[in-house]
């Protein structure tokens, strides 16, 4: 069991290494997409500066607190798309029969699939997250905690993507719904919890668990609470298990295909 985990981790790291080699190959486009992404994310600061020019607090949050939501969200989002971008490609793999190549290999299909691809611009999100943290909430403790929490956030977000995309095993073109759900997840995680009503909050803690990836981590950085941290870890484990179960259950419905390149 341990050897298998070790071997799977080895392949995941190798995939990451080769993905990075590929990304670095196109230096100009890599650097451009990273810097443009940082610029794109930074442009939202202006919006918040304007709002906080009019009001001092949103709920009990200051500008620095709100920027934590942005830091955590873009850090988790960036890390997900650097490490697990293959999760976004699950529908394409299912619909075009591209899972075949992973199924004939002696490794965990899901781990192999999600680490099979990377998104270069996601480095921009990750870097922006650290920049926002350093500018608005700098402390050594915060950097350490932030790094840990965006890893947890990435695991939650990746699990959510896998769960959504696994429905493609049952419903063709579910990817379009998946995209919308992912957008809701991102939007929900970028804004402070106080602006949402109770019903939305319940949804964001359960069906679209962006509260776990963003709201709880923000609260943990503002004021660390070990019980909340343990609950977060447990919830992450549960989400990962659900993601694995749904994917492997769906895999039994996989029909493959002999599609050559065709219009989608």
């Amino acid at each position: 069991m341990l050897t298998e985990v070790k071997n799977n981790l080895k392949i995941m790291f190798l995939s990451l290494k080769y993905n990075l080699i590929r990304v670095m190959e196109n230096r100009v486009s890599f650097l451009t997409s990273v810097s443009m992404m940082i610029f794109n994310n930074a442009s939202f600061i202006i919006q918040w500066l304007t709002i906080f020019g009019l009001v001092k607090y949103i709920g009990s949050y200051t500008l620095n607190d709100v920027m934590l939501f942005w830091a955590i969200s873009s850090g988790s989002y960036g890390l997900t798309n650097i490490l697990f971008n293959g999760a976004n490609k699950i529908p394409e793999y299912i619909e075009n029969g591209k899972l075949d190549a992973y199924l004939v290999m002696p490794k965990n299909v899901l781990c192999h699939v999600i680490t099979s691809s990377t998104e270069p611009s996601a480095w921009g999100d990750l870097i922006y997250g650290y920049i926002a943290l350093i500018i608005f909430n700098f402390s050594i403790k915060n950097i350490f905690l932030y790094s840990l929490l965006i890893i947890i956030g990435a695991l939650i977000y990746a699990s959510f993507i896998i769960i959504c995309n696994s429905f493609t095993f049952y419903f063709i073109r579910f990817s379009e719904t998946s995209e919308i759900l992912k957008d809701i997840f991102i939007n929900g995680s970028l804004y402070p919890d106080v602006i949402f009503n109770r019903a939305i909050k319940i949804i964001f803690f359960t069906l679209i668990p962006c509260a776990l990836a963003s709201w709880i981590p923000v609260h943990l950085i503002i004021e660390f609470n070990i019980y909340h941290f343990i609950i977060l870890i447990l919830a992450t484990i549960v989400l990962i298990i659900i993601a694995f179960c749904l994917f492997y259950r769906g895999l039994k419905n996989y029909t493959s295909s002999n599609l050559m390149e065709a219009r989608s």
């Binding site: 392949i11 080699i21 190959e25």
Partner: peptide
């Protein structure tokens, strides 16, 4: 009709990767 190789890698890197996959 289907590729198993990583198209951005060289055959050498692909062979190494496949070797690692099969331990």
């Amino acid at each position: 009709q289907k590729e198993q190789l990583w198209i951005h890698l060289t055959p050498y890197d692909n062979f190494k990767f496949f070797g690692a996959i099969y331990d």
